[in-house]
Simulated assay, not measured.
Amino acid sequence: MTGLLVLTAVPAEAEAVRAGLTDPTVTVRPVGVGPAVAGAATARLLTLAEAAGRPYRAVISAGIAGGFAGRVPVAGTVLGTRSVAADLGAESPDGFIPIDELGMPPELLGGGPVVDADPELLAALSAALPGATAGEILTVSTVTGTAASTRALADRHPTAVAEAMEGYGVAVAAAQAGLAFVELRTVSNPIGPRDRGSWRMAEAFRALTEAARALPEAAGTLG
């Protein structure tokens, strides 16, 4: 296997990651916004690399995210212990029902609504980024924007640290290819009502560049 594949949603995130890299074996690609397009693009990139005889050794979903207040600071770095499809399921009078609790046959759920991070890669990144906060990173198709929905999401996921829009899609593609995966994010804003005055985009992009410096060495620990 050859290098590391790092996927971001948008070009600005990809540029921030590249700014922290000097290792030519790391490939960085923006793949679009949302889990469907990110998962499809990741699967295509992995298939093309394998067909060319240069398969990747690991996949990272990277970018900026909203963070849960009190769990991670704005401009902080988070590492996903699991990538969770937080809104994949059904509403009910008693609250949200995750897709794996709806009685569907397991074979129709793929890996279910959760993909665990590769423990070896997660441990290596945690060691290289001692200031990072580890926890679940939620993947949503609609960004949380009210106090009520923020409370509900935080209650359903007490160990979640952040939410973004691509991680679960990239994670599923990596899992289907049998590759190690971790989600890495830096926090640009607190999750909740959209208050642009509280966003710290520049700080989050700088933190992403700094975090990217740890990627090649961490990936190199994989067997």
Rank of each mutant, 00 (worst) to 15 (best):
E91S: 14
A85G: 13
G70W: 02
V114L: 00
P73K: 03
A38S: 09
E50V: 04
A69Q: 11
G110N: 04
A40I: 14
A75S: 12
L108P: 01
G63F: 06
D116H: 08
S61R: 02
L102F: 07
L125Y: 13
I97H: 04
P73R: 03
P119Q: 12
V37Q: 12
T42F: 06
A123M: 11
P105L: 06
G63M: 05
L102A: 03
I64D: 04
A86Q: 01
L79Q: 10
G80H: 05
G76K: 04
G63A: 06
G135Y: 09
E50I: 02
I97W: 00
R57L: 12
A62R: 12
A65M: 12
G67Q: 09
G53Q: 07
A134T: 15
A117L: 13
G135D: 05
G89H: 02
P55D: 07
G67K: 12
G103K: 08
A49Q: 11
E107R: 13
G110E: 04
E107N: 07
D116Q: 10
P119G: 10
D118K: 14
G135H: 05
S61H: 02
A43R: 13
E91R: 01
V78G: 04
A40Y: 11
E101K: 00
G89V: 01
D116L: 14
D94R: 15
P93T: 03
R54N: 11
G63S: 03
A52R: 14
A85S: 07
G39N: 05
I97L: 13
G135P: 13
A52F: 10
G70C: 10
L109C: 04
G95V: 11
L129N: 07
D94N: 11
A86G: 05
V84E: 06
P113G: 03
R82F: 01
Y56G: 03
G66K: 10
A43N: 11
G76I: 03
